[in-house]
């Protein structure tokens, strides 16, 4: 999908961020049109958060062009931030305030009138299912509740773009699904979502389009399904062997499937027909202790592009 730069809410060309000698973001090009859910997928240290901070106008780019909502972050920071919602990686809720006060107080930073702030706080608490905790302090809340409150806080100014830096990292599966469901509803409402994640399932669930980042660079770009088709086979056979090292087995599988990838604990065999490939493995007299035939995911794309796994 090609998007003309003038229609993009976020437009970056050759965007760089350096911290002293270290280059966190090494020249990336990004265009995000209105209404899209756009993801930055990559392992820790890939440069996702640094990119997000530049887009949030709280970190100055070291080089390159960056336009948010058609404006320059360096000169029009307050005007841009007024129309952004930010959910940072680490919750920075106000521990001295109650759940509801966290929303009403935050609204005031946007100069939203008190009455409107109160109404919006109640609506948002309903939206993130925290109405019954409105009068509670922040500290006793669970991780999932705090994250939902942070998301509600990011929505208090009715932003056009919502930035979510690893929105479900550290949450248990149930809490993650609740967050995903709320984010999906935002997306349906037409809010432009920008999120970073190192979870491939999160990216597949939420993102219309994503870039895979590694070492500060973009290594691939496209819709999740498109990336899988382009960089991986339809299916993957995961083979575990009791004694032999996966690398040794890989040598005996020449010609089976399209390619193999040896991980420390298992061997991945890429093939469009997983069951057929597995049959070939068995014909060669190999007897794996564990077998799993599954569809390719973004994890496989990432592994193929960088030679490393996403979550270490």
């Amino acid at each position: 999908m090609t998007v003309s730069s003038d229609g993009a809410l976020i437009h970056a060309r050759g965007l760089r961020k350096r911290f002293g000698e270290f280059t966190a973001v090494d020249g990336i090009d990004v265009d995000v049109p209105r209404g899209e859910a756009f993801g930055f997928l990559g392992p820790n240290g890939a440069g996702k958060s640094s990119t997000m901070r530049m887009i949030a106008c709280v970190s100055a780019p070291s080089a390159g062009t960056l336009r948010i909502l058609g404006m320059d972050p360096l000169r029009q920071g307050p005007a841009i931030r007024a129309r952004l919602g930010v959910c940072p990686q680490l919750d920075n809720l106000d521990p001295e305030l109650t759940v509801r006060e966290n929303l009403t107080t935050y609204a005031r930073y946007f100069r939203i009138p008190r009455r409107v702030a109160r109404e919006r706080a109640d609506e948002l608490l309903e939206f993130v299912q925290l109405t019954d905790r409105a009068g509670s302090k922040v500290e006793p809340l669970s991780g999932g509740m705090k994250r939902r409150l942070t998301i509600a806080r990011a929505l208090v100014n009715e932003p056009e773009i919502v930035l979510l830096d690893e929105p479900t990292t550290g949450l248990d599966p149930q809490a993650r699904h609740l967050v995903w469901e709320r984010l999906f509803r935002l997306k349906q409402q037409g809010v432009t979502l920008l999120l970073t994640t190192h979870y491939m399932d999160e990216a597949e669930q939420l993102c219309d389009r994503l870039v895979v980042m590694d070492g500060g660079r973009i290594v691939a770009e496209g819709a999740p399904r498109e990336l899988i088709t382009r960089y991986s086979t339809r299916e993957v056979v995961e083979l575990r062997f009791a004694a032999d090292a996966p690398e040794d087995i890989a040598g005996k599988l020449a010609g089976v499937g399209e390619r193999t990838e040896a991980l420390p604990d298992r061997l991945l065999l890429y093939a469009d027909d997983g069951d057929a490939a597995l049959a070939q493995v068995q014909q060669r007299g190999l007897e794996p202790a564990g077998v799993l035939v599954r569809r390719s995911t973004l994890e496989d794309v990432f592994l193929h592009l960088t030679g490393r796994t996403l979550v270490d």
């Binding site: 709280v58 920075n92 521990p95 001295e96 935050y106 806080r153």
Partner: peptide
């Protein structure tokens, strides 16, 4: 420690 200002700086407040 509270990182209060990190949250505030994400708004128009400078």
């Amino acid at each position: 420690y509270v990182k209060l200002y990190d949250g505030i700086l994400a708004t128009p407040v400078r």
